[in-house]
């Protein structure tokens, strides 16, 4: 599958798809999208890249084992959920900024939570796929 066209295309597709994944993550609160789908799309981006260039190249781009994304994501989600405690509110109460930030929009604890989901999904998918393709 290592054709020249696919290889060249995948190099451009990777950043584009990742950007798209983040876009999907950010718009999730208002329009179709969200952390879960975003995470899946980002994983597909890496998988396509690894198909075209070989697993080792993709690993080099990511630099660390994708499994690390799982604890990181879980921690972010947990912190986002626990943050309201600091303000004396129950676990998972939504906290929101008063003014929207340009481009990103209104930022709240839910977005951080969704980012956690996003990272966990990437970690899970890539760990499974990379492990299986290595084992074969």
């Amino acid at each position: 599958m290592k054709t020249l066209i696919f290889k060249t295309a995948s190099n451009y597709l990777l950043p584009l798809l990742l950007l798209f994944a983040v876009f999907i993550l950010l718009r999730g609160h208002y329009l179709p999208g969200g952390g879960f789908v975003g995470g899946l799309i980002a994983s597909i981006a890496f998988v396509i890249h690894s198909f075209a260039n070989g697993l080792e190249t993709t690993r080099k781009i990511i630099k660390f084992h994708p499994g690390f994304l799982m604890p990181v994501g879980l921690t972010i989600a947990l912190v986002a959920g626990a943050a309201p405690w600091l303000f004396g509110m129950p676990f998972m109460t939504g906290l929101w900024m008063d003014e929207p930030i340009p481009v990103i929009g209104l930022v709240g604890s839910a977005l951080f939570f969704d980012t956690g989901v996003f990272l966990v999904v990437i970690g899970v998918t890539l760990t499974i796929i990379f492990t299986i393709s290595e084992g074969l």
Partner: peptide, 8 residues
Amino acid sequence: GKGKNVVN
């Protein structure tokens, strides 16, 4: 929830 996408 300050969101328009009910699912999310």
